[in-house]
Design a protein around this nucleic acid. Structure first.
Length: 142
DNA sequence: GCCAACGTTGGC
DNA sequence: GCCAACGTTGGC
């Protein structure tokens, strides 16, 4: 299956990108919303994931990768993620909201959704705003 | 601290 | 099955 891109939200005081860097990897749990769970179950090993900090920060801070996806008894999907890189320039929610190319994205439309897909045109724009270079490993997935 | 936009619960 | 009351999330 073709690799996809996602955005996961987390309150950094609960679990931040720094915490993930320290730990090296983690299982992304605590998702209870139905639509978010539906998205989470669609994540495949190897997919690219943007890490968004909610609360005071309201910005995308880094890129992760799904390193292992397992389905346990009862149908629960466990998505294990590892850090790839911090964004050279974090992308603020305010930037995203004011960008016509991004205004229809779930991040803007459905503020409570914590797991959402990142369509290719959104990824391209975010990569641009984040100052990612085409030589960056994460961008080569384009 | 408030509130909008949801989701959940339980009585009917 | 409907809906009022309540809880939660996350931006403002």
């Amino acid at each position: 299956m073709e690799l996809q891109r996602w955005l996961f939200k987390q309150e950094p005081s609960a679990y931040s990108y720094s915490a993930l860097e320290k730990e090296g990897k983690t299982v992304w749990d605590g998702v209870s919303n139905n639509l978010a769970l539906k998205h989470l179950r669609t994540v495949c090993s190897g997919d690219t994931i943007l890490f968004y900090h909610t609360g005071k920060e309201k910005q995308i801070v880094g890129i992760m990768k799904a390193v292992r996806v397992t389905t346990v008894e009862g149908g629960t999907t466990l998505v294990e993620v590892a850090p790839v890189m911090r964004l050279p320039k974090p992308v603020q929610l305010s930037q995203i909201k004011s960008d016509p190319a991004l205004a229809q994205w779930e991040l803007v439309r459905i503020s409570r959704l914590s797991v959402m897909p990142v369509p290719p045109h959104v990824w391209a724009r975010i990569a641009e705003l984040a100052g990612l270079r085409s030589s960056d490993k994460a961008v080569q997935l384009l």
